[in-house]
Amino acid sequence: MSTIQKSEFWRSFKSAAWLGWQIESNWADPLLFFIYSIVKPIASASILVVMYGIITHSNFENPLFPYIYLGNAFYIYVSAVMAGVAWAVIDDREHYKTLKYMYIAPIRIPYYLLGRGVARFLTGSMSVFITILAGVIFLKLPLDLHMVNFPLFFFSLFVGIIMLSMMGLLLGSITLLLVHHSFGIAEGVAGALFLFSGAIFPLEVLPAWLRPVGYAMPITYWLELLRRSLVGEVAQAFPTLVSFSNLQLIGILVGLSVIFGILAAYAFKWCDFRARERGLIDRVTNY
């Protein structure tokens, strides 16, 4: 039984990842798709670079610049993975009208939804890499490969991607029950987290009453760990999380990720049950 179960999990995830990749990529030839994948994040980063450049007279040596630039670059994963998993529900239910077939196929829906996020993770990784590379080449981003803490980087990245997938599953679960605002929820949450997690500015800039929201979000600690692993001394210059050691940050990140994982599992179970009860799985709202 255990072998069959594992096989079913893997089958769901692998098929969904392949399907997601086909949907994401096969509308254009590879070159056009590559350009499409990098233009958007580069433009997004360039807005911040121009804003920063005109105010500081292109003082890219200031520690604030790598803080903003790296935070913005890694935030691509939030929109890609979290929103990607949640978007799979809308895409399958409303656009392709295939969610009902997925439900009767011999797969596990939560694993299927997580698998659908893989394609976005891959395209997101490409965007993150290109964005950082552009920063190093053109803007003298102080990234020295000899100084990078690779174990910390890869561990943080891994935990962060799992955490974002769980947050995506949580949103996807809620999306199963939504009619009118299913299109906006992932975008709204990603936008709110961009503001509250200190992705592109230190949390001290936020009004004091808003800062606790940032401290409660695992993304805040994840971005801090990624910054510290890549540009250690620069990242530690900011007072936001200066009192926490790397180990403490890892502990908080893992703890919050586990909490979101448990929340996502229960939320999916409940929302899935309610959606089946109310006949929402094959609904097309045309909204």
């Binding site: 807005i47 911040l48 804003m51 920063y52 105010i55 500081t56 604030l64 903003i68 009118h180 605002h181 906006g184 975008e187 709204g188 936008g191 709110a192 961009f194 503001l195 992705a199 592109i200 500015f201 230190p202 800039v205 936020l206």
Partner: peptide, 29 residues
């Protein structure tokens, strides 16, 4: 007929605006 859309249409751009405003504040523009 769907006034709640107004919330999303205003709320989402406001999030982006707020982020950029805080960046300007962070760099003392």
């Amino acid at each position: 007929r769907e006034k709640s859309w107004m919330f999303f249409d205003i709320f989402l751009p406001m999030l982006a605006v707020s982020s950029y405003v805080f960046v300007y504040r962070a760099i003392q523009a």
